[in-house]
Write a protein that binds this DNA or RNA. Structure first.
Length: 649
RNA sequence: GCCGAUGUAGCUCAGUGGUAGAGCAGCUGUUUCGUAAACAGCAGGUCACCGGUUCGAAUCCGGUCAUCGGCUCCA
C-alpha cells in the first residue's frame, strides 16, 4: 500500500491500541486531503505503522467491495460514466463518478436495485497484478465494461500517480452466465476486497454530492454517491435508526424546541437571534470563564465592531480573507471600514498604545468579541457555523522566557473548561505549516520556534495530540480542540496559537532588562472557540438536557391549583435568593390553569432539572413535592431538604 | 461558491390541475385538579417569492431566495 511518511511519534494518543473504529476517522480524515489517489496517512506510533489495522478488518473490505459493486452497476446503467475513486469511509463508502447528464437522487433506486441483482450473481472478486503498460492497456480496452478511452480519464491519472516500483493491481468481478458467457468488471485498485459479491448484502445508497476531482476546487466537480454497508441486516437497521435518533438531538431542532435561539430570513443567513433561555446559557458560560480568567491574571478589554480596513491590511487579514469579509463601508472622507472579522489587531493597538516594560509582561487581554465572517452560503450550519459569532478571545503578550509557562497556563484553562463542560470525547490537533503553500507569513525559524513551543508544552503536559500539516493559521501554528457533533461531523472548537508574526508586522516592543527594545511573542487563545459553536455542540452532546449549572431554568415551580399560585411565587423568590455555582438560582413558575400532569410534561420536555410541586398537603406540612428530570418523582420533602439537595447538585 | 434535495398555519405533517386540511400550540369558556397531554368552542395560511403554461395552479414549467446533506473553506 502507498504511504506518506510523517515523523515517528507525530500521531499519538487517540490511537492507543486502536483497531477499526478509532482508526476510521483518521482514514476518513486523511483520504481526500493528499490525493487523488486512494491514500491514507499511516498511523505511526513508536516507529510502527498501524494504518493497516482498519484496512485489515472485514468491514473495510466489505465496504470497499460495495463501492466497486456500485461502480459496476453504474457502468451498466450509464455507459458513458467515468469512474474515479471509490474508497470505504466511516460507516460506508462512496464513489466519485463523472456522469454525462446530472444524476438525480431518484436515480439511486435503480442503481441500488441493479447492485442487489449483481450481488446475487455471486461474482468472484479476483486480484491481478500487472505491469504499468498492461494496466494502461486494460484501462483503454473498450471490450471490458467500464473501460475504454472514452471513460479512462481519471483512471489513467490514478495510474500515473502510482509510484515506480509499487504493485499495480486490478480487482476483477467475474462470472459465467447460463449460456457459458464470461462477464467481468475490472477496476484499478489496490484493495483489499471480499471474495465474492454475494457477501455484499446489507447496504443502502444514501445521497448524492458534488466532489472536486482530487479535492481541488480548480478541478472538475464529479458526482459522489454515498452509500452505507454493513455485515448484517441488524447493523444496517441500527445504523439507520441511529441517524434518526441523531436528528432529534440536532442543535437546530433542540434550539427551537428549547427556545435557545432562532434565525430569521429577515435578519440574514447565519445571523442568530438569541432568545432569553439561550442568552441565559451564554451568560452562564461567560461568567464561568471570566471568573477563571480573573484567577489567572487576565485583564478585560472591550473593542468596537468595525474598524478602518488599514488595520487589517497591516495584519495581513485582508490579503488572505478579503472574500470572506462582509462588504466594506466607506465614510465621507473616503476611509474604508470593515465589520471586524478578528479581535487581535484591536488588542495589539491597545498593547502598542504605551511603552511596555518587561516588568509589565505577560499582559493578557481578554474580550468576548463578536466577529463577522461572510462564510460561503453552503457552509452555514445553524450556530455551529454562523456568520456572526462571539469568540472568547484573549491575546497574551509574553517574553520568550515566559512563552512556555504561559502556553502551559493557557492549555490548563482549556482543560478546566473541558472538564467543567463535561466534554471528554475530543481530539487535539497541532496545525502546522504546509511547506508547499505560500499563504503563510513570517520567517521559518519563527515558525519552527512556535511549533516547538506548542509540541513541547503538550509533551510536558502529557497531552495526546496529532500533527496536521496545512492546518496552521497564516501567521502561526496552533493547537486545536476538535469535537464531533450528533451526526459525527468534526468541528474545531477551542484553539491556541503561538504567533511571532503579528508582533513583527505591528513592530511591537517591550523594554527588557538590558534597556533595549525587544519583540514580544503573542499567544492567541479561545477555550470555547466561539460561544455559538460551543453551545451548539453542548446542546447535541447533552441532547438538550444541560447539566444543572448550565440549565437556563433550573427549577420549575408547579402550583397545583390557583390558590397555590401565590405561595408558589413566594417559594420561587426564596429559591432565587440562593446562590448556586456563583449565580442566583434560575426559577420559573407555571401558574397557568392547567393540570399538574400537563405542567410536568412540559417542564420535562423543556428538560428542566428539578420540578417542585406545591399543593394543599405541602402548605400544611411545610413540604414540597420534588421531581427530578432524570429520576422522576422523589416524593414530598421539607423545603430545606430540597434546597440542600439542589445545592449539592 | 459548487453538486443534490426540501419549502403548505407558530410547530409536526396530509393534500398530483377544479372552493386550502389535521394534530399540537394560541384565544374564549367550563373544570381547581398530586407526578408525562382535562373538555368544548373560536381564530389562524399571498401554499417561500417572482414570472410562465392553463378556462382554472399548492399541484405543471422557468427564475430567485431560504433551509438540509455533501464538496471546498473556516483568520
Amino acid at each position: 500500500m502507498q504511504l506518506i511518511s510523517v515523523p515517528v511519534g507525530a500521531r499519538r494518543g487517540p490511537l492507543e491500541g486502536a483497531v477499526g473504529r478509532s482508526i476510521m476517522p483518521y482514514c476518513r480524515l486523511i483520504e481526500g486531503r493528499y490525493n487523488g489517489v486512494l491514500q491514507f496517512i499511516p498511523i505511526v506510533r513508536e516507529g510502527k505503522t498501524m494504518a493497516t489495522a482498519y484496512e485489515q478488518t472485514y468491514l473495510y473490505r466489505l465496504r470497499h467491495s460495495a463501492a466497486h459493486l456500485m461502480a459496476q452497476a453504474v457502468t451498466e446503467l450509464y455507459p458513458g460514466a467515468k469512474l474515479s475513486i471509490g474508497p470505504p469511509v466511516e460507516n460506508g463508502f462512496y464513489y466519485d463518478i463523472e456522469f454525462e447528464t446530472p444524476l438525480r437522487e431518484e436515480d439511486l433506486a435503480s442503481i441500488e436495485k441493479r447492485m442487489k441483482e449483481l450481488s446475487k450473481l455471486d461474482q468472484r472478486i479476483e486480484r491481478t497484478e500487472v505491469s504499468r503498460d498492461d494496466a494502461k492497456a486494460l484501462i483503454l480496452d473498450e471490450s471490458i465494461p467500464g473501460m475504454g478511452p472514452a471513460v479512462a480519464e481519471y483512471k489513467l491519472q490514478l495510474l500515473d500517480a502510482i509510484p515506480e516500483g509499487e504493485a499495480i493491481s486490478f480487482y476483477d468481478q467475474k462470472r459465467t452466465d447460463r449460456e457459458g458467457v464470461h462477464h467481468r468488471f475490472l477496476d484499478l485498485c489496490r484493495g483489499p476486497h471480499v471474495d465474492t459479491t454475494k457477501e455484499i448484502k446489507h447496504f443502502k445508497l444514501m445521497s448524492i454530492a458534488g466532489a472536486y476531482w482530487r479535492g481541488n476546487v480548480k478541478n472538475k466537480q464529479l458526482t459522489r454517491i454515498y452509500g452505507t454497508a454493513w455485515e448484517s441486516a441488524e447493523e444496517l437497521e441500527a445504523y439507520l435508526h441511529m441517524l434518526e435518533e441523531a436528528k432529534k438531538r440536532d442543535h437546530r431542532i433542540l434550539g427551537r424546541e428549547l427556545q435557545l435561539f432562532m434565525f430569521s430570513s429577515k435578519v440574514g443567513t447565519g445571523l442568530p437571534l438569541w432568545l432569553p433561555k439561550g442568552a441565559t446559557l451564554r451568560d452562564v458560560m461567560v461568567d464561568f470563564l471570566k471568573k477563571e480568567q480573573v484567577k489567572r491574571g487576565y485583564d478585560p478589554v472591550v473593542t468596537p465592531n468595525i474598524a478602518n480596513i488599514k488595520l487589517y491590511e497591516k495584519s495581513g487579514h485582508v490579503v488572505n480573507y478579503r472574500d470572506k469579509m462582509f462588504p466594506f463601508m466607506q465614510d465621507d472622507e473616503d476611509e474604508i471600514y470593515i465589520l471586524k472579522p478578528m479581535n487581535c489587531p484591536f488588542h495589539i493597538e491597545i498593547y502598542a498604545s504605551q511603552m511596555r516594560s518587561y516588568r509589565d509582561l505577560p499582559i493578557r487581554y481578554a474580550e468576548f468579541g463578536t466577529v463577522y465572517r461572510y462564510e460561503q452560503s453552503g457552509e452555514v450550519a445553524g450556530i455551529l457555523r454562523a456568520r456572526g459569532f462571539t469568540q472568547d478571545d484573549a491575546h497574551l503578550f509574553v517574553t520568550p522566557e515566559q512563552l512556555q509557562d504561559e502556553f502551559v497556563g493557557v492549555v490548563d484553562i482549556m482543560r478546566t473548561v473541558l472538564q467543567k463542560l463535561g466534554l471528554n470525547d475530543f481530539r487535539m490537533r497541532v496545525g502546522t505549516k504546509d511547506p508547499s503553500s505560500d499563504k503563510y507569513v513570517g520567517h521559518d525559524d519563527n515558525w519552527e520556534a512556535a511549533t516547538k513551543a506548542i509540541t513541547d508544552a503538550c509533551d510536558k503536559l502529557g497531552l495526546d495530540y496529532e500533527v496536521s500539516p496545512g492546518d496552521a493559521a497564516f501567521y502561526g501554528p496552533k493547537l486545536d480542540l476538535i469535537i464531533k457533533d450528533a451526526l459525527g461531523r468534526e468541528w474545531q472548537m477551542g484553539t491556541v496559537q503561538v504567533d511571532y508574526n503579528l508582533p513583527e508586522r505591528f513592530e511591537l516592543e517591550y523594554i527588557a532588562e538590558d534597556g533595549k527594545p525587544h519583540r514580544p511573542i503573542m499567544i492567541h487563545r479561545a477555550p470555547f472557540g466561539s460561544l455559538e459553536r460551543m453551545i451548539g455542540l453542548l446542546t447535541e452532546q447533552y441532547a438538550g438536557a444541560f447539566p444543572l449549572w448550565l440549565s437556563p431554568v433550573q427549577v420549575a415551580v408547579l402550583p397545583i391549583a390557583d390558590r397555590h399560585a401565590e405561595p408558589a411565587h413566594e417559594l420561587a423568590h426564596k429559591l432565587r435568593e440562593l446562590i448556586f455555582d456563583t449565580r442566583n438560582v434560575r426559577v420559573s413558575v407555571d401558574d397557568r390553569r392547567e393540570t399538574l400532569g400537563k405542567k410536568i410534561r412540559e417542564a420535562q420536555l423543556q428538560k428542566v432539572p428539578f420540578m417542585v410541586i406545591l399543593g394543599d398537603k405541602d402548605l400544611e406540612n411545610g413540604t414540597v413535592g420534588v421531581r427530578s428530570r432524570e429520576d422522576g418523582d422523589l416524593g414530598a420533602m421539607p423545603v430545606e431538604e430540597f434546597i440542600r439537595r439542589f445545592l449539592t447538585g
